[in-house]
Design a protein around this nucleic acid. Sequence first.
DNA 1: TATGAATGAGCCTTCATTCAT
DNA 2: GATGAATGAAGGCTCATTCAT
Lengths: 190, 190, 190, 190
Amino acid sequence: MRKSKTSLIFQAAIDIFSEKGFDKATMDDIAARANVAKGTIYYHFKSKEELFLFLVEEGIELLREGVESKLLPEMPPREKLELIVREQIHFFGQYRDFCVILLRESWGGEDRQREFRKMIRSYMLLIEEVIKEGMDTGVFQRVNAEYAAAGIFGMISIAALHILLGHAPYDEEVLFTDMKRMAFTGLLTE
Amino acid sequence: MRKSKTSLIFQAAIDIFSEKGFDKATMDDIAARANVAKGTIYYHFKSKEELFLFLVEEGIELLREGVESKLLPEMPPREKLELIVREQIHFFGQYRDFCVILLRESWGGEDRQREFRKMIRSYMLLIEEVIKEGMDTGVFQRVNAEYAAAGIFGMISIAALHILLGHAPYDEEVLFTDMKRMAFTGLLTE
Amino acid sequence: MRKSKTSLIFQAAIDIFSEKGFDKATMDDIAARANVAKGTIYYHFKSKEELFLFLVEEGIELLREGVESKLLPEMPPREKLELIVREQIHFFGQYRDFCVILLRESWGGEDRQREFRKMIRSYMLLIEEVIKEGMDTGVFQRVNAEYAAAGIFGMISIAALHILLGHAPYDEEVLFTDMKRMAFTGLLTE
Amino acid sequence: MRKSKTSLIFQAAIDIFSEKGFDKATMDDIAARANVAKGTIYYHFKSKEELFLFLVEEGIELLREGVESKLLPEMPPREKLELIVREQIHFFGQYRDFCVILLRESWGGEDRQREFRKMIRSYMLLIEEVIKEGMDTGVFQRVNAEYAAAGIFGMISIAALHILLGHAPYDEEVLFTDMKRMAFTGLLTE
DNA sequence: TATGAATGAGCCTTCATTCAT
DNA sequence: GATGAATGAAGGCTCATTCAT
């Protein structure tokens, strides 16, 4: 038996939570998927809430670190932003279910939701820094960097989910081309 | 007695659903907020699900019609898109709670969620049409209009929500300026 | 408008109660079937219980009076019993739904159920009297007349319902022949 | 702790269901009677319906098997029928509450009721077989065996219940004597 | 470590009954 | 006489959590 119980549960939780969302998912579901007794989950995680929080934390960290590790200091801002766009699109394709969770569970006034937004914010900050750098070096126009970062994150996220949850195949290349164009030059020809 | 029970319930439902989300909201909550007996809700709406669906339908319709009625056929596409950006930003400020609901409950595989995405799609189509018109007349670059529409909708939505749920005041003018710039010319100075 | 509201409700109640039984039937069902407002029922009957009681009373009275009026004093007991058997079989065929109600709602410790059994007992007494008369004149064997009356009532009732609720057609003639034989000579050939 | 929770619940369910009938009985009632939490019932039985079905299944099986196991192939049909009459009377005395349930809940068009009638039919078939055997060997008169079986079952059932729910004591011996006489020779002296 | 039986608070929904019109 | 909107008590069922083993 290679897998520890903890990671079995973790994997099962991702499956179930993304399939059903936080509220509709039950600990029974997760236990069954992980092939452990329900009590065992409580041995490894304090509560449903904690399990969920842990899971989302890991997910966002995966996205943030994945992008951050590829952002080399010497890259020009333009290249950095291009990389972010590409990576986020790729991440959404790869972790579709997690992304559904993220977009679903981050809005509202509960502590958990505030917590999630904080995590997302830590990712947005990456974008924000790049935008600021670009503005400072004169390659980017002057905008409110926070708004712009949120906008770019949202643009990619919603477009990606729109496709992933629709019927069309998820063509990363086309999506990347269009999202890059929108972010860089906008729609106007002139 | 000015207010009909139905509209009392309707208002209370918006409050509660946006505060707690569909699953956590209870019919008791809504009844209490509306100052009616729980049974009264069921006299006017068949179920929690139906009440919710009705509410979201109305909300999206309000957004869509509000925008559509202002889009005059003779406007140039550029002006149309500008109007859309402005209106959507205004709508989010005005119906913050409803918008939280919308962004929260539209992702996932349940029928209800699929239904919501269809409604959102009907709004996105407005944007899509304008983009297509712009591409045809040569003022907009050639992109996948569906992706672009989803992207613009997402950009505005997430940026708006980001502010609305944060601590800063919701400055529509600034947000409008930046979102318009992003949509039209993108970030690059050149 | 020939029909009084009262009788409209009465008819609807028979339909609904026999279709669904006392507990599953709702006042809404009955009101809808009778094409009156729900409040109207309460104008004519004090409660669901009372409506039901009234209805069962009428039904049993119909059976009892129907039989009693045909039992002429000068008939020999044997002929009387034969008539009872025939009439009860006919009644079950004609008022199948009501008979279902009767057999369904008469057993248990509630007041209503006790009341129903009293009504049934008033019918059984007809049978009991005939049996006693037959024993007195020597044409019937000596048995506990009360038990025998209950037995005959049950034999016909259950056999009739068995057929009526099964798939076979309700052949009154065959049933009558067999029930009469069982009651008069039993199964033994000798 | 001798009693398993399951059998505690089972016993409580018999009590409550026979006291109040299927519809009026509540899971709260049963839980209270069994001294378990309501959730515990649902841990052992999927639903109220299933609990009830299980209970009735067991009961009829008890009756059927009890009788069947005593019916030796070499017995003459007359002796077999006598045994059936005796056993059924005994069973009704012993499981009065269950018998109330049975007679109460078997009539109507719901699936559950149809299911119950099927179970009862399996018992009636025992009687039917004996009657057919008797007709074949010439000791019983020729009748519709199905009707006759239903009739005998009903005769005993209703007579037994009539006594059990009345005020008189349940004298099995007298009842047996009379029911046997009715089944074998009928009421006529000649 | 791991289990799974047991718990009980909480939720959606139904429906007999009332009452202002 | 008649209506139907409104009520609120009650019931079936779910599920996160606990705990004895």
